[in-house]
């Protein structure tokens, strides 16, 4: 593992060219450039650690940035450009995992948890209601207690 990381560090180090990129990687048309950048933010820099190709200095990331801009400039849609890179680099390159049998649980997480939580709350309340304890008006004792905890401090 350590050796592998070392090797990857070497891979990243070479060929040491630009640090932050090159003006030629930007498209003249701001609308096209904005689209290219949005597409680039969806693509993982494969040799980096959790960075998009827009946020990386690695040589591969720069090549992919140019590629995305060429595709966009040639009139490809955002989806076509993403598909082009996806076909060559596989699922791993997409920072937004495609919805499919392997990712359905991932995408369902918000609904599952929110829904599950709501059901649990409703069930708990029903059970509580069935055992029937107390009314929902604050009793005098509870009011005094809250006043002690929340009101202005006694003089």
């Amino acid at each position: 593992m350590t050796r592998l990381l070392l090797l990857l560090a070497l891979l990243l180090a070479a060929p040491a060219h630009a640090q932050i990129g090159d003006t030629t990687y930007r498209l003249e048309d701001p609308a096209l450039e904005a689209r290219a950048r949005a597409v680039g933010r969806e693509l993982r820099c494969l040799v980096c650690q959790n960075q998009s190709i827009e946020d990386s200095d690695a040589s591969l990331a720069r090549d992919l940035r140019i590629l995305v801009r060429e595709q966009i400039a040639a009139g490809a849609s955002d989806e076509e450009t993403l598909r082009f890179v996806h076909q060559r680099y596989g699922d791993f390159v997409l920072l937004r995992p495609p919805v499919g049998i392997h990712t359905v649980l991932l995408w369902a997480t918000p609904v599952l948890f929110l829904g599950g939580g709501l059901i649990a709350i409703v069930l708990t309340r029903r059970r509580r209601a069935a055992t029937g304890i107390g009314d929902t008006e604050l009793s005098a004792e509870e009011k005094a207690r809250l006043a002690r905890l929340e009101g202005p401090p006694p003089p």
């Binding site: 891979l11 591969l60 992919l64 060559r88 680099y89």
Partner: peptide, 13 residues
Amino acid sequence: PGRVAIEWGVYGV
């Protein structure tokens, strides 16, 4: 230019 490498999906050398 490294373009064929991208066609292959190469990460690096």
